[in-house]
Amino acid sequence: MAVTYALASEAVFASAAVLILAGAVAVITVKNPVHAAISLITTLFGVAVAFVAQSADFLAAVQIIVYAGAIVVLFLFVIMFLGVDRTRVVSLEPLIGQRALAAVGVAITVAGLVALMWRSHWVTGAPSVSGHPLASGAGNVHQLGTAVFTTYLFAFEATAALLVIAVVGAVLLARREPSEEGSPS
């Protein structure tokens, strides 16, 4: 029984990892922006599967609702509105030295990851390694709610205020004064 369960969870992890990696690679290699957005959805779904495997069900649901269901839709919305949904010539470099700097950044990140894996164990994997064991089912939501509204209340409210400020700022920037176009009637 235990062996079959471990085998199943490893199969789930492997398939989620394949989804995540395939999606992520496609996001940066595919030329059409809409295809890239679809690949991003694949990655987000893979991450949601990984969340479920770590018994963070609520996070998985929120991942799909917020990221796949709203944010990528907005990406697509902007892509369609701005009409950049065509394959672009990518050989041009908008900023001089951008490619070289990006290569240096990637090298630093990869080196950091390798160093991390060298010195410590994998962070993902069995739930017992990844932190406090999560209560299953509805307890999951309870735990998360308690953490957000007691321990991390200030951070939570600060984030909310930041988001409101961002929305108000966006509306203000997008607004046009009606008097400029002359009175309607």
Binding site: D57, F58, A60, A61, V62, I64, I65, A68, G69, A70, V73, S136, G137, A138, N140
Partner: peptide, 14 residues
């Protein structure tokens, strides 16, 4: 599923 009705919200998002 433990997340129940959130599945419906997720699917309507998809």
């Amino acid at each position: 599923p433990p997340v129940g009705i959130l599945v419906m919200l997720a699917m309507s998002g998809i």
